Simulated scan of single mutants.
Amino acid sequence: MNVWVYDSDDKLNEAGAGIISGIVQTNPRAVLGLATGGTPVGIYKQLVGDFERGMFSFRGVTTFNLDEYVGLPENHPESYRAYMNEHLFRHIDLPSGQAHIPDGNAPDLEAECRRYDERIEDAGQLDLQLLGLGHNGHIGFNEPAHALIKGTHVVDLAEETRKANARFFPSLDEVPRQALTMGVGTILKSKTILLVVKGADKADIVRRALQGPITTDCPASLLQTHPHLVVLLDRAAAEKLS
């Protein structure tokens, strides 16, 4: 595990984008696992800037997003498809057919989960998986549980997770209650995992995830078992690490 702590958002975002762009420059046909939420926005902005400066191309890259809400139209402003289009996809040269996001409106959600896993398997091992960290230790939408599911699956979102995401919606009642999420088994198969966490409100869960016992009650703690985990933290998020 490599843990890096930064004193500014700009430096952290530059470091995160540099890790991703370095993989793409080394392997123009890289397979990337992408995340949404507030944490990666600055990283995506830095990537777009680097792309516009001609540093690399996404033309040969394939991407798989971690998750998508169930029941939100694809063009809903809070769908993760809309998020990715807004913050990354529409600014770069990634062909649309190479950008994969689970279909939360599929008529058969279980079949959609199987289809998504098959596409990931066909693309080969993820070269990098970008992750944020939920307040309850979830990664993707893999919530704390007695056992975690290996592949893509339908998940009932914890009330804590819904409340955390309510800031993006007019009210808590409008936050979806289910999502499709990539499983922990798929995440852990990635060659590199890049975990990015910001803010003092995440300091406790950062300590549990990185230095606490490995338990499904804190799904992110399973990342301790990964041979190439890179963690980028701001000073506030790292405050309670020993």
Rank of each mutant, 00 (worst) to 15 (best):
S8G: 11
D10V: 14
N13T: 10
I19K: 06
I20P: 04
S21T: 13
S21P: 09
V24K: 01
Q25K: 15
T26Q: 15
T26G: 15
N27A: 12
P28Y: 01
P28T: 05
L34T: 13
A35W: 01
T39E: 12
V41N: 04
G42V: 01
G42H: 09
Q46D: 14
Q46P: 01
L47I: 07
V48C: 09
R53D: 12
R53M: 12
R53A: 15
R53N: 15
M55W: 09
M55E: 14
F56P: 04
F56W: 12
Y69E: 00
V70S: 04
G71H: 11
G71D: 08
P73V: 01
N75L: 11
E78M: 14
Y80L: 14
Y83Q: 00
M84R: 00
M84W: 09
E86T: 14
R90V: 04
I92H: 05
I92R: 02
L94W: 02
L94S: 08
P95I: 05
Q98A: 14
A99W: 00
A106E: 02
D108N: 15
D108T: 10
C113Q: 02
R115V: 05
D117G: 10
E121Q: 15
E121K: 15
D122P: 05
Q125D: 06
L126C: 08
L128N: 08
L130A: 12
H135F: 10
H135Y: 08
N136K: 12
G137Q: 10
E143Q: 11
E143W: 08
E143C: 08
P144N: 07
A145M: 04
I149D: 09
V155K: 07
K163W: 06
N165Y: 01
R167D: 00
F168R: 03
S171L: 05
V175L: 00
V175I: 00
Q178E: 05
A179Q: 03
G183D: 09
V184I: 15
I187C: 11
S190D: 06
K198F: 01
D201Q: 13
K202C: 07
K202H: 06
I205D: 00
V206N: 04
R208I: 00
Q211S: 13
G212Q: 10
I214D: 04
D217C: 12
P219G: 06
S221L: 01
Q224C: 11
Q224N: 03
H226L: 00
V230R: 13
V231K: 08
L233R: 09
L233E: 00
R235P: 05
A237K: 04
A237L: 08
E239T: 13
